[in-house]
Design a protein around this nucleic acid. Structure first.
Length: 283
DNA sequence: CCCACACCGATT
DNA sequence: ATCGGTGTGG
């Protein structure tokens, strides 16, 4: 299906830290959602996206409409909406892929996260050349710690299979059942698992459980929030209370679109961060 | 309730 | 020393 640039920027979507297993091709991107191959290629005026990408990119939702609703609630994001037009919240089919992907992210950077998530993916069925369906929770639970350590997972080599075992100890379909309960309940249920903190839980809520009001507060969003809303907290650390305050304020301002709104603030910081590092390394 | 620290490992 | 957190301890 054809989607105009004003509605979709695949480059932004797949490099915004929501998914980690998309590969650049000559004309666009290829990746997996659930058991489906998703492709996107640049065409005149926009993107040609495979039918399988409709759900991942939420193409049935009008981005124009989302932008309008965000601006109606609060105008301060206007310039970011323009700067990052086409950025969308993604909606992954396998909640466990979202969960175990984001368990690779704490205290980490994209240069390590991407190979780590790809490594996890390689335990799944190969769908087509070099593209793997994400492995089952059962499969992840039985990966030996030293195997992941050898692959550079560090201490996450222990926590990842450990989280898998804790999920398996819960009722069948526990993780996906969190999709149909209120955001707050889903979030606190996730946090009960040893190894899942509030930040990872919010990432899973947003991308894997489709709770659009989830606001993951990492150091980048934290800084953006301090600049915009909590100047008195600049330079301070993120405590449990401040974490909640940021998310709650975003939800107060943007309602069920808080997760979408957060994405623009987050991406802006990430860009500045990457740019800063680049400039620094050139000097 | 807030802060300090360890944890892996790549980069500064 | 710093980092796209989390768990533990004071």
């Amino acid at each position: 299906m054809f989607v105009p640039y004003s509605e979709l920027d695949v480059d932004l979507c797949v490099s915004s830290g929501q998914v980690f297993r998309f590969h650049k091709t000559g004309e666009g991107w290829i990746g997996i959602d659930g058991s489906d191959v998703v492709t996107a290629r640049r065409v005149q005026g926009g993107w040609e996206v495979s039918e399988s990408g409709r759900e991942l990119f939420q193409l049935q939702i009008s981005l124009c409409d989302i932008e309008r609703r965000i601006l109606e609630r609060s105008g301060e994001l206007a310039k970011r909406l323009g700067r990052f037009r086409g950025l969308r919240v993604l909606k992954q089919k396998y909640a466990h892929e979202t969960l175990f992907s984001f368990l690779c992210t704490p205290n980490n950077n994209l240069n390590r996260i991407v190979p780590m998530v790809r490594h996890l993916g390689s335990y799944g069925n190969e769908i087509c050349d070099g593209l793997y369906e994400f492995p089952s929770i059962e499969r992840i639970a039985e990966i030996p710690e030293n195997e992941l350590r050898k692959a550079g997972f560090g201490y996450r080599a222990r926590t990842i299979p450990n989280v898998a075992r804790q999920v398996l100890a819960r009722p069948e379909r526990w993780l996906t059942s969190l999709r149909t309960m209120p955001y707050k309940e889903a979030h606190s249920s996730l946090c009960e698992i040893d190894g899942i903190g509030p930040k990872v839980a919010d990432c899973v809520c947003l991308v894997g459980l489709w709770h659009t009001e989830a606001v993951p507060v990492d150091t980048h969003l934290w800084q953006a929030a301090c600049d915009l809303y909590f100047p008195e907290w600049k330079g301070k650390s993120i405590t449990q209370n401040r974490y909640d305050a940021v998310g709650n304020l975003m939800r107060e301002k943007f309602g069920e679109l808080a997760g979408w709104a957060h994405q623009y603030l987050f991406y802006e910081r990430i860009l500045d961060y990457r740019k800063g590092k680049h400039v620094y390394s050139q000097t």
